[in-house]
């Protein structure tokens, strides 16, 4: 057990707990950007810095284990100024097309900018202008929106062991992409979608074909059927504010029929068939 204080509040935590985790236990919110609870810290963004009494350095809360007797300060004008400057720098390297972005209103960078009350741009914009990769039927990669948090790489390489995505180059011109000049469709990508679901911004986003579906549904010459993956029956509830785990099967079928699909299939049907065999 380690005893320390955060903003004067005593904390008792297990050895190896990070400053960020310890702070959350005592309801102290440290802003983060690259951090994701599923993943080991990449320590990339520098937003979560805090002060430790007795040192004039600032430490990253996401990856620094709390030590016995540490006296941590998470907010003061200097810390906030540094965080804000870092955020301004990140924003200067990010396009301003929130309204047209798939991640609008669910973007972690956007939320952070709002939380810091960013109203104007302090630094000139530098956007790399690397072309989008829309070679697959699953996602669009937009390198301009990447904040180099490293989550997609961590997921793709370490957790999924797919190694489709990689960090290429160095410094300001570093970027994430498949190796050897390949497009995503030529890479080992299996379209698992983990990169997209962990991306904090719109740099990797599911290919949106809503308009095409609407068009097909309205075409009287088409007989439209729909098939859903098993996990969607439960997962979709969260998007509508239901408690996690709510079974939505009935509602989902009803909605799909009302949208105009003539028949609704569930992928689990094939599983049932296999069992009957």
């Amino acid at each position: 057990m380690i005893i320390a204080t955060i903003n004067g509040i005593p904390v008792h935590v297990a050895e190896g707990t990070t400053i960020l985790e310890a702070a959350r236990q005592v309801q102290v919110k440290i802003p983060t950007l690259c951090h994701h609870p599923d993943l080991p810290p990449t320590a990339a963004c520098g937003i979560c810095i805090v002060k430790v009494q007795g040192s004039n350095k600032m430490l990253r809360a996401c990856c620094t284990p709390i030590e016995e007797g540490m006296n941590i300060l998470t907010h003061d004008p200097e810390i906030v100024e540094v965080r804000r400057t870092v955020l301004e720098l990140i924003l200067s390297n990010h396009p301003n097309d929130c309204l047209k972005c798939g991640r609008n209103q669910s973007c972690e960078l956007q939320n952070l900018a709002a939380a810091f009350g960013i109203r104007e741009e302090l630094f000139p914009k530098f956007i790399s202008g690397i072309p989008k990769d829309d070679s697959t039927n699953a996602f669009v990669i937009d390198p301009d929106k990447c904040i180099h948090c490293g989550r997609c790489i961590e997921i793709c390489q370490e957790l999924q062991q797919v190694w489709a995505l990689s960090f290429l180059g160095r410094g300001f011109s570093s970027r994430f992409a498949p190796a050897a000049g390949m497009r995503l469709v030529e890479s080992p990508c299996v379209e698992c979608g983990q990169c997209s679901s962990h991306c904090p911004t719109g740099a990797i986003f599911e290919l949106d074909e809503t308009v095409k579906v609407w068009q097909k549904l309205q075409d009287p010459d088409n007989y439209c059927v729909v098939q859903i993956a098993p996990s969607v029956r439960v997962a979709i509830g969260e998007a509508f504010g239901m408690p996690p785990g709510t079974n939505m099967t009935g509602k989902l079928y009803t909605v799909l029929r009302r949208l105009g699909f003539k028949a609704v299939f569930d992928t689990s049907f094939a599983a049932d068939v296999t069992v009957m065999e």
Binding site: Q157, W163, S166, F167, R170, A179, A180
Partner: peptide
């Protein structure tokens, strides 16, 4: 490039790792 691919196959290193390293070091 074909040597890089050969290395990846023979050493059982993902091609992505090889290119990450190649493009990092000037």
């Amino acid at each position: 490039p074909d040597i890089a691919r050969y290395l990846a196959r023979t050493l059982h290193i993902p091609l992505a790792r090889i290119y990450e390293v190649l493009t990092f070091y000037h």
